[in-house]
Design a protein around this nucleic acid. Structure first.
Lengths: 227, 227
DNA sequence: GTCTATATTTTGATAGAC
DNA sequence: GTCTATCAAAATATAGAC
């Protein structure tokens, strides 16, 4: 697991690892090619020998990361099984991918905030593969009668956001550890995954009625928040 | 209300609005003081008249944003009521804060990825106020017998992450609208809030099984809130 | 493939007039 | 409070030797 200083591999591999770390920690503009090169123990000119530009390097890293995730969830779906089991595995696969490339969550969060300015179509298509798989799992579950109807994108956000948030926030939690209770800063990884699995399946288990027609008590009837 | 080009208010107000937009869209390093000044229709020197540095400007904006959220959830808690109702309002309040200052979600996502490098203690203390309120609500619900035991931080992530993800991803969804089905890019805001409320309460309604046993036998509870 | 030097722009910040 | 002019440092990218 090459992570911080990327001490192993070819110069190109070290470069990719160093750049991922730098982009994740400082963002596209905050990442400096000098620092990336130094971290990879290569010269700055070598960076431009391997990649056309800083942006191209960035895109290659992100494309590879999303490709890995897409591959993982595709494998999950190909494995088959009941829809709820597939969904659990889908969630697990995404969590695993976040661990496998530890700089992925931070880069994803940043790219969202960035409005996708550095994404090209090929990268977005990898992202689309992921949500397509989720859509199929949800559809299968619906036909099997174990899932209610939901918007796949809403479900996707409910899954991905907490997982990425949790992974990416490890440094900030560590940094301000002294200001918050210990249990708060250090939930176990399995706790998050289990929580996401439980909440996602709970939302799917209850058959959703069409908009605004609570045939069964959809909300607590006592209080209606907001007016 | 003032959002993009901040055409109104004093020069200081325009500056703050322009800076928030710029920091949200480009990040701390990507934001350029020249652009901020131009956007606020002031001179760059005016920026340094009002703020000691780019970093100080950034921190003031973030502190104000977190302060607003903390104030909103504090008001929710002070209002009292059953714990489940308070929790719904807590979630609603955070969603509302994200709408009230539309650049808040992107800045938050970035700051997490950044490892909190630009945060000072006063900002983190505002963040802590939020999770403390949540902790109290969860505790009250537990004592009332309507919530099971949970890690407040896990719950907090499950609430905040989807809400911030959704708000911050509006630009990227718009940008790549042509690559994904229409319904996927445009879920309604209420859909997300309702989803977060439903999933969070579902996770709390079920008494937790013992740690680390998310085996497939565990069925998601049917959604049922008491009132 | 790898490196040293350097060109060219951009950028955060300030001085000082009004 | 507001502006013009400007500096000094930093940053992306390239040229060209080995």
């Amino acid at each position: 697991m090459v992570s911080q200083s990327a001490p192993n591999g070819t110069s190109r591999e070290r470069l990719l690892a160093a750049a991922a770390a730098e982009f994740a920690a400082r963002g596209f503009d905050g990442a400096k090619v000098d620092r990336i090169a130094a971290r990879a123990r290569i010269n700055k000119a070598m960076l431009y020998y391997h990649f056309h530009s800083k942006a191209a390097l960035y895109r290659d890293i992100l494309r590879q990361m999303f490709g890995t995730v897409a591959g993982a969830v595709t494998a999950v779906h190909a494995q088959g099984g009941p829809a709820d089991v597939q969904l659990r595995r889908f969630i697990e696969a995404i969590a695993r991918a976040a661990e496998g490339s530890p700089h992925f969550p931070a880069m994803w969060l940043r790219e969202i905030a960035e409005g996708g300015r550095h994404l090209d179509e090929s990268i977005v298509l990898e992202m689309r593969r992921v949500i397509e798989i989720l859509g199929r799992i949800l559809h299968a579950g619906r036909r099997a009668g174990i899932f209610g109807p939901v918007n796949p994108f809403v479900t996707q956000i409910g899954i991905v956001a907490p997982l990425m948030f949790f992974s990416a926030s490890a440094p900030i939690r560590e940094r301000f550890r002294h200001l918050v209770p210990a249990r708060v800063v250090a939930p176990r990884r399995e706790e998050i995954v289990a929580h996401v699995q439980a909440t996602t399946l709970a939302a799917l288990a209850a058959p959703r009625t069409r908009a605004g027609a609570p045939s069964r008590s959809r909300r607590p009837p006592t209080r209606r928040q907001r007016s």
